[in-house]
Design a protein around this nucleic acid. Structure first.
Length: 1082
DNA sequence: GTGTAGGTACTACAC
DNA sequence: GTACCTACAC
């Protein structure tokens, strides 16, 4: 399509001038036929249905446009047609899309069809459109004219800064007050998607409470008893009210600050149309035609907005395909499209069936698959036929499924296959590899690298995780706070200074031993070289590190953060190194650095002060709030294999598509409940008859399949590193119409995988014959990959295994088992870390309780004031989020101690036999040491000697009976070991589970046995905040498991194996996550 | 059937 | 940490 006409010099006209607009004649049809209204060119090349859709006159129109049917053509040509036939001036047309990218593309196409000067049609995203309305009518909405829009991470920071202005209890645990902020932000955003106002949410929550009070009759079939059901309902009502009020407060605080969030861009526009009659009239009058792309992905609020704008004239065209609705998780209401005709009985419906993209076998398989979503499909519900008819015929290849033994074989095979075909003349850009989740791409990318196949991966995050950016962040944090040893350590150990080995260990250990920060020690070392014996090159690097940090700290007071950062990049030689390296990775790193600079600049602009100390802190808060931009992508036009998620692939097409990792649990992904879900009563969406999650996953699979033009390959493996063999995705079976082949689908080696390929290619349906299950007996790759094998990670280079006995505390064992690298940071390198508020709180509580017990042993009962004074003496104000947070924790601690003291004053309370009891015992020649909080030794009455008869309370109702004679074979006393916990456990079941799984308690049991020759009877965790106690009996089986864990840790520590074992959760809580090269956090 | 232990995954994307 | 599933014991 070529551009025609020239930009009109005339200004935009008022509606009254409409009739004077000169008729713009589009180019004629190629065959010379001219339509009477001069629009033939616009209709050229369209099929009959498309033409009908484009030339639909007034009134509602639903265009059901399946994959590859020319949907965008229809919308853009319809816009051009409406203009060309003078049904509307360009500015009277509103076209709405979801993404900026889609809006841009559509605008470009409209520009090609309509001459310059006529293209002031509003092609924009819902959000951009809403934003424009909000600003135009800011006065009506009571907003300042310069309202700023907060991104999601920014809303989290906004709430964090005002955390104690919310009335929260359940959703602001003091041990981790920010824990639910992300979930709250999601919930509030979902409310806006679903057009639920704070008032409505609060009303709903109140009604839950009233319904409870008025007493609904108990359903005898309900699984819970009447009492339990009432309790659960009351708890739910309470929580919902807490959430609803938090939502109302959030809106109130935003309003007060003159800010809005993304959700508001639509919901406020909606409110404007609802509440201001004049604004409504004006807007309805302004837009005579409304067109919506991807209508199946609109949420409730967006659909409502469209309805209101078009309510007056009903000129609304929606284009979509219910089978491609894949954004339910962000509010897409498939009922919008399913119910369109019910809401608009006069609506015309046009179905586009001709598919210009895919060959017949691909369409057949896709259709077979999607039919499994019946009856919850438009086709079934409205009794229509929307099966796609292939326009591209000939040269068909069957859809293939290929099974592999392992994920790496799967990835290798694909890489080799693509590489071979490129060798035979294919272009890399003809291939796409679709994954369900971004993380599924890693093995594929590795294999493509190995096969030297160029690729581009469109991840949407990961910038801050890049090593070059982590280094810059560590630098900024170091300069902002020289006492941050973790960051100074990361900087020292980086390539820039190259420190390491025993010298660095010695330096760090000195810092820890002398209770000083790493910076203080390195700084002292340059002034007093005699402090430690160090290698000359270590000394030189240290001098440089200290001089640099001094210099940068100095200029950081004068210059903005961006300049300091640039100085570092230049001064350290990093910039030169990256710029001169001729590798793709260096180029990428450079671009990532550039991107990071943009962020530093943009965020600096928002702050009242743009110097490092403020910018560094702000950036960290932003990262903690979940900000995670994409990494740089070099040359998106390059000839490379596209590796992308199915979501990202929507709207694209490729000659050859591989869908990988197609196993149960990955695709379909397993269902996960939202952390805080909007109550179903507030969601105005009819439930489908089938499983909504599986249906959405099936639609996603359908979208993936229909990206393929000529060839589609579905692959999966039995072994993705887990212990269990994986089963093929049900979707593969549905699409290819093969019976389920159950577990053990994988071939045992690549030769067999190749057989599977051959079998697939021969079969008409493209189905593979099920390969034989993995050979039994021998250790499977599954086991080899996942079993914890210290030998798997190499010992520290240049270090001999530790000779002689180790001395280990429980914390050392526990840290090693969590992650060997964490063990190294904490116990070998001993990098000093800033105290966490939970540690401050826990240790103050402990100290107060222990003092109470010590005095108690001497016959003195501390008064409440004395106990609390002891608590406050042990307090330190480090690590708390805010002053309010610290106050809240202090108050919680005082309350816990009062409760604790009262329990101890009851007549049946037990006076502990030992407190703070140190121990050491030997296990396989290693020394295990530690300290027990509390040991109780109770004399038992004979008839109470059955320990299982004891109640689960912290103060067992037992009478000490000194006259009871000792019976042979029976312990006349009952020994209980207690560990006090300050963590927030409010559920007795949880308390017991925690005790059951506690390695610490098992170690205490062993220690007691080693010292006294007998095992204790019970072990318990005492949660001071709730007063709950989780208790377990001692069992040999558990003890042996605990010994096994200790041995495993000891073996690894002895061999100096400190390879990281990154874990999603453990990394998230690790103090070293910001500097750890292996961190899996975020 | 019920309880326990062990294994697994902690999305997808955008304004 | 935790929700959920499966296998297995009783």
């Amino acid at each position: 399509m070529t551009r025609i006409g020239r930009r009109a010099s005339r200004p935009v006209r008022e509606p009254a001038e409409l009739e004077q607009i000169p008729v713009w004649a589009p180019p004629d049809d190629a065959d010379g036929q001219q339509a009477p209204d001069g629009t033939a060119g616009l209709l050229a090349g369209l099929n009959a249905e498309q033409r009908r859709a484009v030339t639909h006159g007034d009134g509602p129109l639903l265009v059901v446009a399946g994959a590859g049917t020319g949907k965008t053509q229809v919308i853009t040509r319809r816009i051009a047609w409406l203009i060309a036939t003078r049904r509307a001036r360009p500015s009277q047309i509103l076209a709405l899309t979801f993404t900026d990218k889609a809006a841009e593309e559509m605008q470009a196409r409209v520009d090609q069809l309509v001459p310059y000067g006529y293209t002031d049609t509003a092609v924009s995203t819902f959000h951009a459109f809403g934003d424009r309305l909000i600003r135009e009518f800011a006065l009506e909405l009571g907003l300042p004219p310069d309202t700023r829009v907060l991104s999601r991470p920014e809303t989290v920071i906004f709430m964090r800064e005002r955390l104690f202005e919310f009335e929260l209890d359940q959703y602001r645990p003091l041990g981790e007050p920010t824990r639910f902020l992300g979930a709250l932000a999601t919930l509030f955003s979902r409310c806006k998607d679903e057009d639920v106002s704070p008032e409505r949410y609060v009303r709903h929550a109140m009604e839950l409470g009233t319904a409870l009070a008025s007493g609904e009759p108990h359903d005898p079939d309900h699984p819970l008893s009447e009492t339990d059901e009432r309790l659960a309902a009351a708890e739910n009502a309470r929580r919902q009210l807490e959430l609803a009020r938090a939502y109302a407060r959030y809106q109130e605080l935003l309003g007060r600050a003159g800010l809005i969030d993304f959700g508001d861009q639509v919901s406020l526009a909606l409110r404007l149309l609802r509440e201001s009659a004049s604004a409504r009239q004006e807007i309805q009058h302004r837009f005579r035609y409304v067109l919506v792309d991807e209508f199946q992905d609109t949420n409730r609020a967006q659909a409502e907005l469209v309805e209101l704008i078009a309510a007056h004239h009903g000129n609304v065209t929606v284009v979509g395909d219910d089978d491609q609705s894949i954004y339910k998780f962000r509010g897409a209401a498939i009922s919008n499209i399913l119910d369109f005709r019910r809401r608009h009985p006069r609506a015309r419906q046009i179905i586009l069936r001709r598919n210009y993209r895919s060959r017949a076998p691909i369409l057949d398989a896709s259709y077979r698959l999607i039919r499994f979503n019946d009856p919850d499909r438009l086709e079934f519900r409205n009794g229509i036929d929307k099966r796609l008819r292939p326009e591209r015929t000939g040269g068909e290849r069957p859809v293939r499924q290929i099974a592999f033994a392992t994920g790496s074989e799967e990835a290798d095979w694909i890489a080799r296959e693509i590489s071979d075909r490129i060798g035979k003349g294919a272009r890399a850009r003809e291939f796409a590899i679709l994954v369900r989740a971004n993380s599924d791409a890693d093995p594929v990318l590795r294999s493509l690298n190995m096969a030297s196949v160029p690729w581009r991966f469109s991840g949407t995050s990961g910038l801050y995780a890049r090593p070059e950016i982590r280094l810059l962040l560590a630098f900024l944090r170091s300069v902002a706070d020289l006492s941050s040893s973790v960051d100074v350590y990361a900087l020292a150990a980086s390539d820039v200074y190259g420190l390491g080995g025993p010298d660095l260990t010695a330096i760090v250990n000195t810092a820890r031993r002398r209770n000083r920060s790493l910076w203080e020690i390195v700084e002292e070392l340059t002034r007093q070289p005699g402090l430690l014996r160090l290698a000359p090159d270590t000394r030189a690097s240290l001098e440089r590190l200290v001089a640099d940090l001094r210099r940068y700290s100095e200029i950081a007071h004068e210059k903005p953060a961006g300049e300091v950062l640039y100085e570092f990049l230049r001064g350290s030689g990093l910039l030169a190194r990256l710029a001169s390296a001729q590798s793709v990775s260096a180029e990428e790193a450079l671009q990532n650095v550039a991107r990071f600079f943009d962020i530093v600049r943009a965020q600096s602009d928002l702050l009242p002060d743009d110097r490092v100390i403020f910018v560094a802190r702000h950036l960290q808060t932003l990262i903690d709030a979940g900000d995670d931009p994409a990494t740089a992508e070099i040359d998106s036009e390059a000839d490379a294999v596209a590796v992308l998620t199915v979501h990202k692939a929507k709207g694209l097409e490729f000659p050859v598509v591989f869908m990988v990792g197609l196993v149960d649990g990955r695709f379909p992904a397993r269902t996960r409940r939202e952390q805080l879900a909007l109550p179903v009563e507030l969601v105005d969406e009819a439930l489908p008859e089938g499983d909504p999650h599986v249906q959405e996953e099936r639609r996603l699979f359908y979208v993936g399949m229909t990206r393929a033009r000529d060839e589609l390959v579905l692959t999966y493996a039995a072994d993705y590193g887990g212990r269990r063999a994986r089963r093929a995705s049900q979707f593969v079976l549905e699409a290819l119409d093969v019976p389920a082949i159950g577990a053990g689908v994988a071939a045992t080696d690549t030769a067999e995988a190749a057989t599977a390929v051959a079998a697939s290619e021969g079969a008409a349906s493209g189905a593979a014959s099920p390969p034989s299950p993995a050979a039994a007996g021998a250790r499977s790759p599954l086991e080899r990959l996942t079993s914890f094998e210290p030998a798997a990670s190499p010992a520290e280079p240049g270090r001999e295994p530790v000779e002689g006995p180790l001395s280990l505390s429980f914390y050392q064992v526990d840290d090693y088992l969590t992650c060997p690298l964490k063990y190294k940071y904490v116990h070998v390198l001993r990098v000093p870390i800033a105290p966490h508020h939970s540690i401050v709180y826990g240790s103050a509580l402990h100290q107060a309780v222990q003092e109470f017990h010590r005095r108690q042993a001497r016959g003195y009962v501390m008064s409440e004031d004395e106990l609390i004074a002891a608590f406050e003496r042990a307090w330190s104000n480090e690590g708390f989020l805010t002053r309010e947070h610290e106050e809240a924790r202090l108050a919680a601690g005082r309350a816990a101690l009062r409760r604790f003291r009262e329990g101890q004053l009851l007549p049946e309370a037990v006076v502990p036999a030992y407190v703070e009891k140190d121990f050491t015992f030997s296990l396989d020649g290693d020394r295990i040491r530690g300290r027990m909080d509390r040991v109780d030794v109770e004399r038992l009455a004979v008839d109470s000697a059955d320990p299982t008869a004891l109640p689960d309370t912290p103060t067992p109702a037992l009478q000490a009976d000194t006259t009871t004679p000792t019976l042979p074979g029976l312990h006349p006393e009952r020994v209980t070991i207690t560990d006090y916990k300050s963590s927030d456990v409010r559920d007795p079941v949880r308390a017991r589970e925690r005790a059951r799984d506690s390695l610490q308690l098992q170690i205490y049991a062993m220690a007691y046995q080693a010292e006294t020759g007998r095992l204790p009877d019970a072990l318990q965790l005492w949660f001071l905040e709730s007063g709950l106690v989780g208790r377990v009996e001692v069992e040999e089986k558990k003890l042996e498991k605990a010994r096994e864990s200790i041995r495993r840790a000891a073996k690894g520590i002895r061999a100096r194996q400190f390879g990281a074992s990154p874990d999603y959760i453990a990394c998230g809580y690790c103090a070293f996550r910001d500097i750890c090269p292996a961190s899996a956090a975020r």
